[in-house]
Every structure is written in C-alpha cells, then in structure tokens.
Design a protein around this nucleic acid. Structure first.
Lengths: 344, 344
DNA sequence: AACTGTATTGTTATCGATAACATTACCCAT
DNA sequence: ATGGGTAATGTTATCGATAACAATACAGTT
C-alpha cells in the first residue's frame, strides 16, 4: 500500500464540524481557541495521524527552512566533517539540508543549483567544482538575492561571503618550520594552480622562501595533482636530478601527495628525515601512522562547516549582513618527518 | 539586498498580455502553443530570470522529487561512501537528498522523520540510531504509506526493506580463516549486542566455532563498544588472564577495536601474529598501515548506498514492490595480522 | 452558407494552509 | 435595556502552478 493518503486540516475540520481556520488555530495558536475545542482537535489530529503540510505552508510563507549544500564529493577528504558541522548548526536553527554533489562537473553544479532554486531553499552553501568556467552564473544567482556562502573552495569578488582555511599563511608557516630546522634547499610538490588551495599553498611556500632570502628554484617546484600517485611521480622527477641538486626538504600540497613522495624517497634508498625531510597539509588520518610520522597542517573542518552555516543563517535573517571572508585558523601537527622528535 | 523577489508565471503573462496558462504551456508543453508566442515566452522567462516554483508544483502533484536520508553521523565510518552512492542514484532519477543526522539520539531521529514527513519527501532512507527504543514509531510511519528503506542498521519484521552487508556470514568466514590457520583458542571483542552489527558479528563468530567443534569460552568474549579505547581495554582484560588461558587469535567486531587491541598486545610485549593473531572488520583506511597490516573484511559501502536508493525508487514508482532484505557481499582483505604473508 | 475540426488561447477550480477581515455570542457597565 | 468589548469561530482571498473544461478563430468540406 503505497498511497500516502495524507490527512489535511480540512478533513479534521469536517470530522469535528469546525472550520479549517479553527483547526489551524487550535494547532498553531492555541490561545485563540476554546479549551474544549482545542482538546478535540488535538485528539483528532493525533488519532488521524495528521502531519502538517510544509509544502503548503512554504507556498504562503515563502520560507522552506531548507538550505542547499553543494560539494564536489561527499566522501572526499574533509567534506564529511564539514557537512557534519553544517548540519548541526542547521538542525539547531530548525533547518534541514538538501545535499548535492557536483563530482567536479560544472554542468552538474549548475543543474543542482537550478533545482535548489526551484525548490526555493532559503540559502545555498557551495564548495565549487574544479572545472568551473563561468563565474557569471554565480553572479546572476547571487544578484537574484539568494543568500549564498562559499566554503573551502571560494570564488572571490563576486559578492558572496566565504569561509575557508588560511591556506597561504599555513603553508608559509609550515615552510618556515622547515627553514627553522636549517634546511635551505626546499622543494614544493604543488597542486593545480587554477584551484584556490593549489595556488594559495604555493604562494605561501614562495613567501616563506623570499622572506628568508632563499632562492626559488623552478626545478624544485613540480605540479602533479592532489593524490598519492601524483606525489610519487612528482617526487621521482625531482630525485632524478643529479644528487648534488637534490633538495634537503619538501613541502607537499597535501598529505596524499606527501605519502606518495615518501614512498618515492624510500624507493630511492633515501631516509626520512635524515636525507630528505618532508611536510604535508591536511592531517590525514594516516599521517601519524607512516613509518616516519608525517608533520603536517591540521584543518578544523568541522569549524569551517559551522562557521559557513552560521554566516548563511545570519544572511538569511538580517537584510544588511555584510560580505565577509572568514578564515578558520589551522594548526601545525609536528611529528617526525620534518626532523623533530627524531628517535635517533 | 536579501529580498529574493522571484518571478512568477503571472508576471510573465502580464508583461506579454497572455494568460498564465499559455505561459505555463509554452514552458512545459511547447507543442500546444503557437510558435511566435512560445518564442516570446522563452525570451521573457530568460531575461526576467524565471525559476519555476517547485513548491507550488509539488502542492498540486503531491510529489517533491526529494528523498529523506537519516544517518547517525555523516563523518562516521563508511557513511560518506554510502551517501555518495545514494546521491548518485538519486541524481540520475532527478531526485535530491534531504540529509539529516540523528547523532545516535532516537529523539532527534523522530524529530527529523517528522520534519521530513511534513516536507512531503517521496521516501525515506534510514540507518537507525543505536539508542532506538520505540519500534512502534517506525511501524506507524511505514503503515502511513511512506516509502521506507533501511540500510546498514536495520529493524526487522516491521514491513520495510533493508539493505545491508552480510555481517553474520562475513564474520563466520573471517573466523573460519583463523581456524584454517590451525588456531583453536579464539577470542572475540564484541560490540553492543542490541545493535544489529554487534549481534550479527558475534553470532557469525560463534557459528564458526561450533561448526568446527570448538568450544565457546565466555572469558574470551568481551563487549566494550566500537572504538579504539574500548578495544584496548577489552583486550587488556583478556591478557590479564593467566598466560595459559590466553587465546591464540582474536576476532574484533571492527577495525578500530582491532587497532586498540593490537596496541594492548604490543604493550604486553607480545607479537602479532606470532603470539596472537587478530582480524578486524570494515577495512578502515588505516588497516594496511599498521605495523603488522590488519587482515579484515571489506564492506562495499558505495554499493550499499546505491542498492538502497535503487530499492527506494522502485518502491516509489511501483505500487506492489515487494519487501526485501538485500545483502551486499563483503570480501576478505587478507594481510598479515592473521598469520598469512608473514615477512619471517 | 452552414458545419466540422483543429490549433491556440482563456477561465475556473484546486492543491493545503493561513492572513485578513467578518461574524456571532455573550458578558458587563451604565 | 442598550451599547461596547472580548472571546470564539467562520469566510474569503492568496501563495504559484496546473488540470479540466471553455471559448475563440480560422481552415477546409460539402
């Protein structure tokens, strides 16, 4: 039996010989209704299994208590933690989440946003796809007045707030940590420069070098994606240089790339951190389990989700909420791959 | 400017001096409308930034193209992968997901389901909270005719289909693997028996022992939650037995428990697998990185999500879709902690 | 010229709930 | 007894879209 025959106010009213208005009031504004009437209505509603039709309510109130969330892939890196944070804030404010994945496809992203708009969500949270081409599209949606907040992967100067991690300064800080160890020849396994986090982390790396008067050697900067395999190959390319051109330390754009690089270093018979030190970014759950535990940067993903949802709710509730770039601060996780805490 | 002033059919109609019906038809049933009229409507709709109001449509059609999903915690164990599977199937069928978390609280779960019902989702997918007390509540919702599918954590004999992993047979199989190694004294670090996966995995363990004529020793069965800490303490309790009562192998209810147990074993100066062999369940991303890589059971989470969503869509579309228990088959991941592939 | 058919457009009622206004009944003060 | 006030309930219109039915115009047929 799949015919969800939903009970309506009208049916309750009919049964009790009342007007629908009275029934509605008995359920929502009890003080405006006679005591005995209210009692009868409550009983009938319960026994008939009444569930208020939120759709009809939304049509009148122009409010759905629903937020749209768009992420590249829910199971990827720290998105589960971000979504957890978003959901908790939403729940506390009586909102629910329409969760969609873009799978890094701009087309899917647009289709999802269009559907969310049609469903009249009260606001949208977006971590944009890597393949994004048409910023104008976002601009139109934002100008149409839909509350909008970017998180993690932001699009700048487009009239929307953004919550992210201080990628550049974090990258600069962890690079500085290597410099403080006394290393001067420091390589960088970078991510795609079109992606914010790829670009920002590279900039942080370069800033740290310049600030300390160290030269940036183009041979030591290799861009090859965000995963283990990319890291392995990128590192190999560097290790194929003559031994006297080898760097003494490596800054990887994220932990998986660092894992790949560590394997490459071992495959070359070199040791971490004695021959080559290395640091990552993201504090992957595996980082501390590496043969030489990886020094890396921890990103408070849950906080990012919370802050993004909080900002969105503020925009929804207050007409003149300002546009902000909110940076959630990372923390270094100093382990052994940088040369600290060495067992020797 | 936060006033999302949404364009309506009426506004387009007014501007073009047409009836709303004609505008509606131009957009949805183009063949019923004159060519030049259609052209004008399409242009106006685009230039005015028209977005069809799905809320109003839903009110008439009694269909929202939205599925409710309830999970304990999105960032926990394999839920991200399950949700990814669900979302992909939903997307292909033009549905979207309202994602909610119960945080293992039955009260939250009920509140979420009530809201989802009010929002008139076309169906609900549930992985039930551990603290669930009142199965009657589910029964009422299901009897009300709302398409309903459980996944991973199921409630049986309640009139709803269920998609899960073959926990019992998987547990029996991995236990059998230890027996095939020749081990006879096999302990079990179990999970809470009220929770399906806890109970089923224990049963599988016991079945394997009985089937091979091995006695079940109550001292070797310790129940202490689902995480590392619990595993550590449970294992400690067993290792505190006189040495001649030590088991030769251990079946842990999941990988985190196994990780904790492995630490306890090492802390007792014993070696894995030479003194005590151990197996886990879930193929946690860390399993293969352990000092002695953990033999465990891989659960195809993505498949579970896909199957659950597919079943739900079938129930929504076909009145007489039967109730089914669908089991997704696991695979052993044989590594070294069981005694296989040993480096010695 | 009257008739039928088709293509195109318009009107009305509806989905379920509620805001805004209207009505009724009854109590109390003067 | 009359008027004013309040508590309780009822009526109507509305949110935006669409199903069902209605109307119009014009072409082709006999």
């Amino acid at each position: 039996m799949n015919v969800s025959s939903n009970v309506t106010l009208k049916q309750i009213a009919l049964k009790l010989d009342l007007s629908t208005m009275t029934v509605s009031r008995a359920l929502n504004n009890p003080s405006m209704v006679g005591k005995s009437t209210r009692q009868k209505v409550l009983e009938a509603a319960k026994s008939m299994g009444y569930s208020p039709n939120h759709i009809a309510k939304s049509l009148v109130s122009r409010k759905t208590f629903t937020l749209g969330v768009i992420i590249p892939q829910i199971s990827h890196s720290f998105f589960p933690e971000i979504v957890r944070g978003i959901e908790e804030i939403a729940y506390d404010g009586n909102y629910q989440l329409l969760l969609t994945q873009s799978a890094e496809s701009f087309e899917k992203e647009v289709k999802n946003i269009e559907t969310l708009r049609s469903k009249r969500v009260d606001g949208i949270l977006v971590s944009s796809a890597q393949t994004i081409v048409d910023y104008k599209y976002y601009k139109r949606v934002i100008n149409a007045g839909l509350p909008f907040v970017f998180f993690d992967r932001c699009v700048e100067d487009i009239g929307a707030s953004c919550v992210s991690v201080n990628d550049r300064t974090s990258s600069r800080r962890i690079t500085q940590h290597l410099i403080d160890h006394g290393y001067e020849k420091i390589a960088h396994l970078s991510g795609p420069q079109k992606v914010t986090i790829g670009y920002e982390r590279s900039e942080g790396y370069k800033e740290a070098l310049s600030k300390n008067g160290l030269p940036v050697n183009p041979k030591w900067i290799v861009e090859n994606g965000f995963n283990e395999k990319g890291g392995y190959e990128a590192m190999k390319k560097i290790l194929d240089l003559p031994a006297d051109e080898h760097p003494r330390a490596v800054v990887a754009v994220n932990d998986p790339v660092a894992f790949g690089a560590m394997e490459a270093i071992r495959d070359y018979g070199l040791s971490i951190p004695d021959d080559i030190a290395i640091v990552g970014f993201s504090d992957d759950i595996r980082a501390k389990l590496m043969p030489c535990p990886l020094t890396t940067v921890f990103q408070p993903a849950y906080e990012v989700g919370k802050k993004a949802a909080e900002k969105l709710l503020k925009i929804i509730d207050h007409v003149n909420e300002p546009i902000e770039n909110i940076e959630v601060i990372t923390q270094n996780r100093i382990r052994e791959s940088c040369g600290c805490n060495s067992k020797n």
